[in-house]
């Protein structure tokens, strides 16, 4: 059953990718574009998404040069305890606070701290290709990070075991003014994975160090400043034990001139992408959702 769901998810992800590569550009009316082509040069499509972070993933967006951004990401506990812990609001929660800056065109660099596993991350995102009405059908960005697990030394044999890495290629298309889709394959790497001793006395890793996953996101705008968002993350790597569950998330987004607010429900609790991808044990089939919100504040210098 699980394999079937996984196969369907992979198939759907590939289908979405094919659809938005093959469909013709509708983000701007071609008839109107032709009348303007004499007075303005072709520019990249704007606002494929409204923010650099959406639900549990990065978007293809790199803000304009000189943008300083502060992100606050919060995840409550799972809702399935019901009123006992007020649907997770009174349960232990996870939070990340991050700062980022765009020093040169198309490059975002930043750092953040996350409560879960006391992780500190540094990250960068580079916009490789931007969708245009005629030349490029999609926007493509690279996102990568390095994370240091800051917990007590007793968790690690060597300090190098504290490090983990995440690499993601983000491919997105603004199909219409309202609808945008994104597909993002990723590779996570943990220097250290928990082990166990098998019946023969051999030491084995519970999971592989590397993990490949794919993420999809859909944004549908309700108005100029509000949108509904949907996301799905699927693991592609099979591990010996503790295989992570997929993430299904959906939420509402409000954008202003200097802020972006998102409130949503999903299965991921970890916030840091490689932690989410490898260690998520919240199962959407068992209604193990967490409520979460993201707040971004932007300044332009």
């Amino acid at each position: 059953m699980k394999n079937k769901i996984k196969n369907i998810s992979v198939y759907l992800s590939c289908l979405i990718l094919l659809v938005f590569i093959s469909t013709r550009l509708n983000a701007q009316d071609p008839a109107e574009l032709s009348t303007e082509s004499t007075e303005t040069k072709i520019k990249p499509v704007k606002n494929t998404f409204e923010s650099a972070v959406l639900l549990d993933n990065q978007t293809v967006i790199v803000p304009i040069k000189g943008t300083f951004e502060m992100d606050i990401q919060h995840r409550f506990g799972t809702i399935n305890n019901g009123a006992k812990d007020l649907f997770g609001l009174f349960a232990p929660s996870n939070i990340r606070i991050a700062l980022s800056y765009v020093p040169i065109k198309n490059l975002l660099v930043g750092a953040g701290i996350t409560k879960d596993r006391m992780q500190t991350d540094i990250h960068l995102k580079y916009a490789l290709i931007k969708q245009t009405p005629t030349k490029f059908p999609v926007s493509i960005s690279y996102f990568g990070n390095m994370v240091i697990d800051g917990r007590d030394g007793s968790y690690f044999r060597y300090n190098v075991h504290r490090f983990s890495y995440f690499n993601q290629l983000i491919i997105a298309r603004k199909i219409t003014e309202k609808l945008s889709i994104q597909v993002a394959p990723s590779l996570s790497w943990f220097n250290n994975i928990e082990g166990y001793v098998n019946s023969n006395g051999d030491i084995k890793n519970k999971m592989k160090n590397e993990h490949i996953a794919i993420s999809t996101m859909i944004r549908y705008k309700l108005s100029e400043s509000t949108a509904l968002n949907f996301g799905y993350d699927q693991a592609l790597t099979a591990h010996p034990t503790n295989n992570p569950h997929p993430n299904l998330c959906f939420g509402f987004e409000k954008t202003t001139s200097a802020h972006n607010f998102q409130i949503f429900a999903g299965n991921y609790y970890g916030i840091v992408p490689q932690s989410n991808n490898l260690f998520n044990q919240n199962d959407y089939m068992k209604s193990q959702y967490v409520l979460g919100f993201n707040i971004s504040r932007l300044w332009n210098y």
């Binding site: 701007q28 009316d29 109107e32 574009l33 009348t35 303007e36 007075e39 303005t40 003014e177 108005s223 100029e224 400043s225 954008t255 202003t256 001139s257």
Partner: peptide, 18 residues
């Protein structure tokens, strides 16, 4: 330099609302 047509007004409206 931007002529006032449906496209530019719609784009302006989006920016205005944000």
């Amino acid at each position: 330099p931007i002529s006032s047509n449906a496209t530019s007004i719609a784009a302006g409206k989006t920016l205005w609302n944000t």
